[in-house]
């Protein structure tokens, strides 16, 4: 597969008189290949938006190499800009314009046929509201308009920063379907989101960033498998006795609520056999698979039981600076 987005060693430091020097992105790498729907995850202040802004030439990187559709960015970005649709954070539109006029203006500036405006309004579900002023739009409608503006160019690459912001559940589902349909038509999508369940449903690949560095990347199922502790939820009549029996069989088990959590089990039949042999019949044996949220929180340290509120940017780095790259192995 050919690389649609390549970022190597991206570094960006912001300097200000008031807050001094702040490293936003610190040697970040990203590879998005053609046809992927690639999720880009990270806690607030981890460098996601800065990365996307640098990629799109809105922020000047201190160092690093970036290419978009094979062209070095930002130097030769204008060559491929017509094939890249993007929204970065929540774009603001001119409140006095209608949705239709907003898109017509962008189409005109970008040399896109105005007939495309109706098509994209239909695609994002704003066709019947296109003649209303943007200032009357809800947050979700503005977000739909932003996505419509990104789709206007009929792009080969779509970069969406938090596209689900402000959308209601039905809107989120529509956005998911839209992205799937775009991917099915060969559009490569890079989407950043905080709604991890959505990323898990939509994306086939994921990259997780924490404090400006990549902490995991690869296929979503492989990233999840990499964090599978082989745990099982077990329900039996006598949990305390069951724990003793499992410990005797050199298995790790703890009582959690009314059930047991057994970990480090490669073959779950061992659990039912050990307990069954002692007359304890297993009522439920459920594998506890990690979801993207738990992996994200584990990798970024974004959720800790603490009496002190977590601050923006307080996420963690991978131990020993290792990066879990399931496509390429582990980079030390």
């Amino acid at each position: 597969m050919s690389a649609v987005i390549e970022i190597e060693g991206l570094r960006k430091t912001f300097r200000s008189l008031r807050s001094g020097r702040r490293v936003a992105v610190d040697g970040f790498d990203l590879l998005v290949e053609a046809g992927q729907v690639h999720g880009f995850l990270g806690p607030n202040g981890s460098g996601k938006t800065t990365t996307l802004r640098a990629l799109l030439g809105l922020v000047r990187a201190d160092s690093g190499r970036m290419t978009v559709l094979g062209e070095p960015s930002p130097e030769l970005l204008p060559r491929v800009a017509g094939q890249v649709g993007a929204i970065v954070e929540s774009p603001q539109f001119f409140g006095n314009f209608t949705g239709y006029r907003t898109l017509r203006l962008l189409a005109r500036a970008g040399g896109v046929p105005v007939s495309r405006v109706d098509e994209v309004l239909e695609l994002v579900g704003l066709h019947d509201r296109g003649d209303e002023r943007v200032k009357g739009y809800s947050l979700g409608m503005k977000q739909r308009l932003a996505v419509a503006s990104a789709l206007l160019k009929d792009p080969r690459l779509l970069i969406l920063d938090e596209p689900a912001n402000g959308l209601d559940p039905a809107g989120i589902r529509e956005m998911r379907d839209l992205m799937r349909s775009l991917a099915a038509n060969g559009v490569t999508v890079l989407v950043s989101s905080h709604i991890l369940g959505e990323i898990q449903l939509i994306c086939d690949h994921v990259t997780i960033i924490s404090r400006g560095r990549r902490v995991a990347t690869g296929r979503v199922d492989e990233v999840l498998a990499g964090h599978d502790r082989h745990e099982f939820l077990v329900r039996v009549a006598e949990p305390e006795r069951a724990v003793d029996l499992l410990h005797a069989a050199e298995l790790t088990a703890v009582v959690d609520g009314g059930a047991l959590v057994v970990s480090g089990v490669s073959d779950p039949t061992v659990v039912s056999r050990v307990l069954g042999e002692q007359g304890l019949w297993v009522g439920e044996l459920t594998p506890l698979r990690p979801d993207l949220e738990s992996v994200f929180l584990e990798l970024t340290g974004a959720y800790e039981h603490s009496s002190v509120p977590r601050q923006v940017g307080d996420s963690s780095l991978p131990q020993g600076e290792a990066v879990i790259d399931l496509d390429r192995g582990v980079d030390a």
């Binding site: 030439g57 930002p74 800009a81 993007a86 929204i87 774009p91 603001q92 539109f93 970008g110 503006s149």
Partner: peptide, 13 residues
């Protein structure tokens, strides 16, 4: 308002 950013996404010059 971000209008310039919006425009630069279309015409990155």
């Amino acid at each position: 308002s971000g209008g310039v950013v919006n425009l630069l996404l279309w015409r990155p010059r």
